[in-house]
Each structure stands twice: as structure tokens, then as C-alpha cells.
Amino acid sequence: MTYFLRTFDQDDSPFLALPIFPNRSFRHSALFVNVDSGIEKPQDLAGKTVGEFALWGHDPGVWMKGVLAEEYGVTPDRMRWVIGGTNHPIPAFDWIPQPVPDGIEIRRTEGDQTLSAMLEAGEIDALLSVDVPQPLIDGSTKKIRRLFVDYESVERDYYRRTGIFPMMHIVAIRRDLAQVPGLAQSVYRAFNQAKDIVQERFRAGAAKQHMAVITPWFSELFAANRALLGEDWWPYGLDANRKAVDTFLRYHHEQGLSKRLLTSEDVFVPGPAGTV
């Protein structure tokens, strides 16, 4: 989403979006802390040094900075930021604009540094990352934990209160192709049909306790998700996603990543494919 939205600061932004969201994830689980940092609740992040994966404002970063500011009163300028790779060193991206607003203290990792190793060593206090620190996955560290230990409960409560299921990715189409009669609508319908096939497969699988899924107790999870998120738990279309999209657009602007506050009408293909 953020890579796409940054193109709108160009004079000739090349793309428009279709309301198709192939990747979503609740992002409270993307916040990690060093156990010796003294961070027990979100407000404790104030005055701390926080790593962020890849760049100032990757998608989980945009979502959680917005949530931290809006729900916990901790704005990004109250933290120091270190940008780099989580489990592997990565160079600075040179293919997208990387604006940083005034008042934000940022530095990059150096050499072979990784944010995961820095977090484990206490060189940074917290980490906001799409990638889970490898030592946490391996179970090889006692120094790293999630800020929201019971993140599933926190994320489910967030959805109940807001109705937002955060999206990470979006499908875009070239502006010139968006003018071809029926093309955007055909792409939108095709993605919807593909999603419907997958969702129906999961619904039908419930009758046999999802034996085709190699995850035990999956049926209980599926039933709980279905009860909370509804029959179309991964909706496409702007009407079903407008609040989430507009929230992300607002966060993007508030964090200095868009020069102006974009609207859904600015970024989506007009007409049926953008409004269904």
C-alpha cells in the first residue's frame, strides 16, 4: 500500500487501484520488545529506540504508528528510530521516495547489523517489523517477546471496536489501461471469483473438520473467525473496505508519507470496479 501511495506525490502518478486486497494481517503482533527495556505497555515506548523494517513507513509500520498515536497517545516523534533489515542486512531502498517529516530522529543500521540482533542485545528497545525476529521463531532467546503478549485477543478486540481488518497489499492498474472499457471490471470480477472459490472451499471443509488442512484444531479457529468476521471474512470492494482504506490514507498523511490527504476517490479506479 505505501509503495503504491507514494507514487501519488509524483506529477504523473502511473497507477490507480482496484479494491482487491490479496494480503491482510492484524499488526499488533508486529511489535516486539527487549524484555529488559522496561516496556510493559504501549505508553512505555515514549523515549525509547525502536527499529523498523526496511524504511520509515513500511505497511505494518504505518498501521501500528497510527494505532499507537490514536489509541495510546504515543506519536512517532516521541521515539528514536533505526531502519534496517530484521533478520538479514538490507540496503536502503532507492526505488521509492522516502520522505521523513521534521522532528523524527532516524538512523540506519550499518554494515552487517540486523534489527533482530540489536533487539536481542538491547541496542534497541523495541522493533516494529513485518518479519518476526528469527530467535523468537527458533525459541533460542529469552530476551525478545511481543509487546502485546496475548496479541490475538488484542487484535480481535480491535476488530470488534473498529471493524478494520488491516490490508497490506493492493492490486493496481496502469492509468491508461484503466480507461479501456470493461478491463478494470473484468480484472475485479476475476479476483472476486478466485476469492469466492477459496472461501467456499473452506466453508465446505468444515463438514469434515478441514481434514485437507494440515493444521490441527483448524476448524475451531475457522469457526471463531467466521463468527467474528462474517461470511465474507476477506472482503473486496470499496464499500466494504472504505473505513480501513481511509484510515490507512489518514495515517499515511499524518506520518509525512503523503504530501496531501488522499481520498479513496483519488486512488481507486472510478466506476463499478472501484465502488462495488
Rank of each mutant, 00 (worst) to 15 (best):
F4R: 00
D9S: 12
Q10G: 07
P22I: 11
P22D: 07
F32G: 07
V33Y: 09
V33G: 06
E40I: 01
K41T: 14
A46Y: 10
G47N: 06
K48N: 05
W56L: 03
W56Q: 00
D59P: 03
P60G: 04
V62D: 00
V74I: 13
T75K: 09
D77L: 01
R80T: 05
V82C: 12
A92W: 00
V100L: 11
D102H: 13
G103E: 01
I106T: 02
I106M: 02
R108I: 02
T109R: 04
E110C: 09
Q113K: 11
T114M: 03
S116Q: 05
A117H: 09
E120Y: 00
Q134S: 10
D138Y: 00
G139R: 02
I144R: 00
Y151P: 01
V154P: 01
Y158C: 05
I164V: 15
R174G: 10
R174L: 11
D176L: 07
L177M: 11
A178N: 13
A178I: 11
P181S: 14
S186G: 08
V187L: 15
V187N: 00
Q193L: 14
A194K: 07
K195A: 08
K195D: 05
D196E: 09
V198H: 06
Q199T: 04
E200K: 11
R201S: 15
R203I: 14
A204R: 14
G205C: 05
A207T: 14
V213W: 12
S219F: 02
N225K: 13
L228V: 09
L228H: 06
D239Y: 07
F248S: 04
Y251R: 14
H252R: 09
E254S: 11
S258L: 10
P270C: 14
P272C: 06
A273T: 02
